[in-house]
């Protein structure tokens, strides 16, 4: 209502140019580069899918792929679910919210690398938690403590992604949990809707415009982030991001084509996952009674 609906002048549109040039220019160039490099054959100008065939045919590629996909999906799912439950709770029972919010902001500021280091110090079999449990006689020392980081099931990476992306998703969706949303939730409660029903029919549709991009962004990081896999992963299988960076930095320049081929595979996976997610959540969009304005674009 405060926003006037006059036509945007050409001069104002000019203001968008530098931002689009830097962000769009560089990231689209990066995309094109990745594509171009991955379809040019090693050591020749011929264009083709030879590099993809090589990479996809390498022993262990699919193990790494499924492993990367699994940790990214699990981490994102946990983070998003946690963010939704916690965000809904904050709307209905705001007690302790301020402290929690400050803590989550703090967590958001901690770089991934440091968070991973902290997880190792806490959760490794000789880490602090294990020292406490063995002091208390809860297990038989190092051997008795479960392997939670650098483990073959990727528990460490999933924990990392979940704990680091939850604040991101939650804080991104907060601007959409204003008075209107809370009023709808209160009405729902009066009409007898349980927590699950409130979340499903009121809360999710309200935050969907930010929740969905934020979820995709955390999935993209889960799949393509280097730090978690490097610090918390195992040697078999390594995440594709770790492999891609190692190949990219190899002095053997033909490995760069392979690195870009992996990058393209990762990008395609994110794109596919986005399409699936959007299709799955279509009902939320149609359910939205009052379309929100762009207040919440800070995803």
């Amino acid at each position: 209502m405060k926003r006037d609906r006059r036509r945007t002048s050409g001069r104002e549109l000019l203001g968008l140019v530098p931002v689009l040039l830097v962000v769009g220019g560089l990231s689209i160039a990066a995309l094109v580069d990745a594509l171009a490099s991955s379809i040019s054959a090693e050591g020749s100008d011929a264009v083709g899918l030879a590099v993809f065939r090589t990479v996809l045919g390498l022993p262990g590629f699919w193990a790494s792929f499924w492993f990367s996909l699994y940790v990214a999906l699990s981490g994102t799912l946990l983070a998003t679910a946690g963010a939704v439950v916690l965000g809904h709770r904050w709307c209905t029972r705001p007690r302790g919210r301020r402290t929690a919010q400050t803590l989550l902001h703090f967590n958001l500021g901690v770089p991934h690398l440091v968070w991973a280091v902290a997880l190792v110090a806490l959760l490794s079999p000789s880490g602090w938690l294990s020292r406490v449990t063995s002091l208390l006689g809860l297990d038989s020392g190092i051997d008795g403590f479960p392997v939670l980081v650098n483990d073959p099931y990727g528990i460490g990476i999933v924990l990392h992604l979940a704990s680091k992306e939850l604040p991101f998703v939650l804080l991104a969706t907060l601007p959409l949990t204003g008075v209107a949303t809370r009023r709808s939730l209160a009405q729902g409660a009066t009409l007898g809707a349980g927590t699950a029903s409130q979340i499903r029919h009121i809360y999710l549709p309200a935050i969907a415009p930010v929740l969905i991009p934020a979820t995709i962004a955390s999935f993209a990081f889960g799949l393509g982030g280097y730090e978690p896999g490097a610090a918390l992963g195992v040697q078999r299988p390594r995440t594709l991001a770790v492999v891609a960076l190692e190949w990219f930095r190899s002095p053997d320049l033909t490995m760069r084509h392979r690195a870009f081929a992996v990058a393209v595979v990762l990008m395609a996976t994110v794109a596919l996952a986005s399409v699936v997610l959007l299709a799955m959540t279509r009902s939320w969009w149609t359910m939205r009674a009052t379309p929100h304005r762009r207040e919440g674009v800070r995803a």
Binding site: P59, G60, P237
Partner: peptide, 9 residues
């Protein structure tokens, strides 16, 4: 080593 011992990338 990577191929034989860990059988992966």
């Amino acid at each position: 080593w990577r191929r034989e011992l860990v059988g992966g990338l």
